[in-house]
Amino acid sequence: MDFTVIDAGLVAKLLLLLLVGMGPKIALVPFLEMTQAFDAKTKAAIGRQMVLTAVVTALIIFATGALLMRLLHITGGAVAVAGGIVLALLALKMAAGPTEKHHDDLGMPVDPAKIAVFPLAVPYMLNPVGITVLIIASDEVVSIASAGLVVGLVLLVAAFDYLVFTNIDALAKRMKPASLVISEVVFGILLTAVAVQLFVTGLVNLGIISANVTH
Rank of each mutant, 00 (worst) to 15 (best):
V122S: 06
D104V: 11
T53V: 11
A63W: 10
F31S: 02
A40E: 08
A82W: 02
R48S: 15
V122R: 02
A78Q: 14
G188R: 04
V196G: 03
K43L: 01
V5Q: 14
I182W: 11
S179F: 15
I26R: 13
L89R: 11
K101E: 15
L156Y: 13
K176D: 15
G152E: 05
L32S: 09
D39L: 05
A40S: 13
G77C: 00
A40N: 00
L149H: 11
L72R: 08
A95K: 00
V11Y: 13
M175Q: 03
L17F: 13
R70E: 12
V154P: 02
A147I: 06
L92V: 14
L52V: 15
F3I: 00
V164A: 07
I26C: 11
L134P: 00
A95F: 13
G130L: 04
E100C: 05
N205P: 04
M34R: 08
L17I: 07
L180K: 02
V194I: 15
Q197A: 11
R48I: 10
D105C: 02
G202F: 00
L87T: 10
A45D: 15
M1F: 08
V141K: 07
A121P: 11
F199H: 09
V56S: 04
T214A: 12
H103M: 15
I168S: 07
L206D: 12
E184H: 10
A54H: 00
I46K: 00
M125S: 05
L198M: 14
A40W: 02
L10R: 01
V79M: 09
V181F: 13
A66N: 13
H102G: 13
L149I: 12
L17R: 05
V213W: 12
L153K: 05
L190S: 08
I168W: 05
D105H: 06
L89V: 10
D105Q: 09
N127I: 08
L190Y: 09
F118D: 08
I60T: 11
V213F: 14
T192P: 08
E33C: 11
H73R: 12
G188A: 06
G23T: 07
L149G: 02
I144F: 13
G130A: 04
N127F: 05
A116L: 07
L92E: 09
N127V: 09
V122N: 02
S183L: 06
I131V: 13
F199T: 12
G65Q: 01
M22T: 03
F187N: 14
V81F: 03
I209S: 10
F165I: 01
G77M: 04
G65Y: 00
I60A: 10
A116F: 04
L67Y: 15
M50S: 01
I144D: 11
G84D: 03
S210P: 12
G107W: 03
K173V: 09
L14M: 10
G77P: 04
K101N: 14
I85D: 02
L206W: 08
